[in-house]
Design a protein around this nucleic acid. Structure first.
Lengths: 224, 224
DNA sequence: ATTATCTATAGATCTATAGATAATGC
DNA sequence: ATTATCTATAGATCTATAGATAATGC
């Protein structure tokens, strides 16, 4: 998120210039998030920012560099989300898990088109994919192994149904992300079955917690 | 999917022309699916099809009309999937549900970038969204209500945990679709935790059936 | 006589920059 | 003296078409 420009002149730049830069960044963010890299035109960004097109290149050089600024910002946001969601205060394991699903959902609700934006720019651009690959590999390699031990221990101690941590994570992410990835298409369904987006979000959040919990808790009603 | 051109001359067109048309359609499909509408250039389609750029306009008029041909084809495929997946031979309710999840997954595995393609073109283009909206509304309104009755009856008769049909559907679709929507990003994870895409697909299909089943089956281990 | 193909190019759109002008800080 | 802004335009890219030429069917 671009924090809209503070009004204090830092000395390095005049106030006016900072506003221009921020206006461009804000407009760029909206355009890129809504239409993707290819769908976005720099002239449109400039127009929406209320500045001359030349200003965009004056401050950011190229479309690509402006895009990367937004893209990296969004990637950081994603990173921050992960650490925020994972590290929990003292709670029982079950409470922790509920909290994780819950917060992950809430984060997405605050950034509803972040997932589509990132998934697409990575899917459609193999170079960008290569650029973040080592970052992803590092994150997974660094974050997961230590958690893995706690996870396996918890499964045994709490008498849960066995599931690998990675499968658990993918379950949570699948269920939560889909709500927002499919939002534009789901509007029809929401209208018919849930009434409002708000009601839909609440219902899905509840359901996602429910299905995850049922997956983890032991029962004696095997279906084989 | 474009069925690669039959070699028989129908009389209306010469053989050569049919091949050209098919080559363009095939190349267009690949480009549009990989790069989206905006990311695709008609010159590139023509080059990949091995024909002159002028041929593309000779046969399809505009980029938009060529795109719509592909888009509608993919939408039909989606429609066909739904009916294929839903209507089942004689099975017990639980077998039916397993079969639905399973087949839905298999369909997606055969068309791995169909979901991203459709979701994106609909998300990024509000006019296209409006154009399919009545189609979607009709499909939901026509297909779901009759099933709803059977569904509610089944819940009671089989003693399942209560869940609305629409939530059930969204659970299944979320879990299955995500595997393919996130595929480009997941390669790192797959490498580390599953070994190969094949192994990953098998594991996720199993997990998706498992979590859905656990959601539906009654147990006596409430976590409240 | 009709259909298919190629060459050449118009016309639109988009990114990027050059160069002149205005505003601010020192 | 430096930083910011504007106007004007170059240069690249892309969609689309005109018009000439070749191939096929009748």
């Amino acid at each position: 998120m671009i924090t809209s420009g503070r009004k204090v002149n830092t000395g390095r730049h005049r106030m006016l210039s900072e506003d221009t830069e921020q206006a461009i960044l804000l407009a760029a963010e909206q355009e890129f998030m809504q239409k993707g890299y290819e769908g976005t035109k720099t002239v449109t960004i400039a127009r929406n920012a209320g500045v001359t097109h030349a200003m965009l290149h004056y401050y950011f050089g190229t479309k690509e560099r402006l895009f990367n600024k937004i893209f990296n910002e969004k990637m950081s946001l994603l990173g921050k989300m992960v650490t925020d969601v994972i590290f929990e205060p003292d709670m029982t394991p079950l409470e922790k898990i509920t909290a994780v699903v819950d917060r992950h959902f809430d984060f997405l609700a605050e950034h509803p088109d972040l997932p589509r934006f990132l998934l697409n720019e990575l899917a459609y651009n193999s170079e960008r994919r290569r650029m973040v690959e080592h970052k992803l590999r590092f994150a997974w390699g660094k974050l997961l192994p230590p958690l893995q031990l706690d996870w396996d221990k918890m499964i045994v101690e709490e008498g849960m149904k066995p599931i690998s941590m990675i499968d658990f994570i993918l379950d949570v992410v699948s269920l939560n992300l889909f709500v927002f990835l499919a939002l534009p298409v789901l509007d029809v369904v929401i209208d018919e079955f849930y009434g409002s987006r708000k009601a839909f979000f609440e219902a899905r959040k509840r359901e996602n917690v429910e299905i995850i919990m049922q997956r983890l808790l032991q029962n004696n009603n095997a279906y084989e």
